[in-house]
């Protein structure tokens, strides 16, 4: 099962990962992070491990994709 991890304090809430996700498993969190943004969050299931959220994310350490967990 693939999954992603969003490091919420390194997310600037740009929404590119949410937009690109082909299976709509990322959403905007209601929480405000320490950078002052609503970060992205994984819905918890359904990730296919396509990696697009990782590549579209402009931040180095905001998203980790586990393709074969």
């Amino acid at each position: 099962m693939a999954r992603i991890e969003v490091h919420k304090d390194h997310c600037k809430g740009c929404g590119l990962c949410i937009d690109i996700c082909p299976v709509n498993v990322i959403e905007t969190s209601k929480e405000i992070n320490n950078l002052g943004y609503h970060p992205a969050q994984y819905k918890g299931e359904g990730c296919t491990g396509c990696t697009l959220c990782f590549y579209t994310c402009p931040e180095p350490d905001a998203i980790v994709v586990y393709r074969k967990d």
């Binding site: 740009c14 402009p58 180095p60 350490d61």
Partner: peptide, 10 residues
């Protein structure tokens, strides 16, 4: 840990 770039910057 974060860049100086604006959100969504290429």
């Amino acid at each position: 840990q974060d860049t100086h770039y604006c959100p969504g910057c290429g």
